[in-house]
Design a protein around this nucleic acid. Structure first.
Lengths: 121, 121
DNA sequence: TCGCTATATGGCGATCAAGCAAATTAAATT
DNA sequence: AATTTAATTTGCTTGATCGCCATATAGCGA
C-alpha cells in the first residue's frame, strides 16, 4: 500500500465538514426530550400520539423533536391511516446510550463511594 | 435474585435525571470545536496553547470548551510550570466518535451510490 | 362535501451557548 | 517586586433552540 515503511500515522485529523456532521449527530442526542422519545421507542414502534402521551410534552414539540431525530437518521416513520408510526432506524442509538449510561453509573458509584462515611481516613 | 419468574422486562424507562445527565454528555460532544479539540488530543497530550494554535480559534474559547469537556469527564488536565497539559481522560470518547464516523461513512457512500449515473435502471 | 382526527408547520418569547475582547489569576524569570 | 507568559474568568452581542399557541395539511368516515 504505502510507499514508505509501515505507514507510521496518518494525521487522522478530521475535516471541518466531518466535524460538523459528527457534531450534528451528537446534537440530536443532546436533548432530554429526544432521549425520552428514543427511550420509549426502544420498547417498540409507537405512533406520534402515543409518544406525546408518554412524553408528557406538547404535540407540536414532539413532532418537531421527531423531525430532528428523523433528519439525523435515527428514527424512521411509517404512515398507516391517520397515524404515523415511529421506530428506531439506527441500532447505533441503543449502543450509544448504553455506553453513556454505563459510564455514568460507574462514575456515580465512584462518587457515592467517595461520599460514604469514613472511606478509609 | 428476583422473586418472580425470570424477570421478563423491567420497563427500562429512564428517569428525568438520567435523561438529563445523558443528554449533557452528548451535548458536550455536539460542538465541532470541541470535537476538533478531542480529535487533536487523540494524537496525545497537548497544552492549551497548542490546542489554541491547532484549532485556529481564540484562546478564551478554547479554554471554555476545554472546561466543558473537563466537566463532562472527557478531558483531564495536568499543570506543569506555566502550561496546562490536556489529555483524553475517557477512552469512550474515541469509541463514540468512531461509531458515528463509521455510520456516517456508510450513509454517505450509500448516498453517493444513489447519485451515481444509472445505478441499474 | 363536511367534519373529525392525527400530525406537521409557522410564529413568538425566553433561554442558552458561541465567539470576541478585556480584565484577572497564577507561575516563572529577571 | 516587577515583568512576562499561560490560562481562566467575565461581560457583551448574536444566533440557535425549546416550548407554547395557532394554523395548515392530510386521511378517514358520515
Amino acid at each position: 500500500m504505502s510507499s514508505k515503511k509501515n505507514s507510521p500515522p496518518p494525521p487522522k485529523q478530521l475535516s471541518d465538514i466531518a466535524l460538523e456532521l459528527i457534531a450534528a449527530r451528537f446534537r440530536a442526542l443532546s436533548e432530554p426530550m429526544r432521549l425520552r422519545l428514543l427511550n420509549t421507542l426502544m420498547q417498540g414502534e409507537r405512533t406520534v400520539g402515543q409518544l406525546v402521551e408518554a412524553s408528557g410534552s406538547g404535540q407540536a414539540n414532539v413532532s418537531k423533536h421527531l423531525a430532528v431525530l428523523r433528519d439525523a437518521g435515527m428514527v424512521g416513520t411509517r404512515k398507516e391511516g391517520l397515524s404515523t408510526y415511529c421506530y428506531i432506524a439506527d441500532p447505533m442509538v441503543n449502543e450509544l446510550c448504553e455506553m453513556i449510561c454505563c459510564r455514568l453509573r460507574g462514575e456515580m458509584e465512584g462518587k457515592a463511594k467517595a461520599l460514604a462515611f469514613n472511606p478509609d481516613i
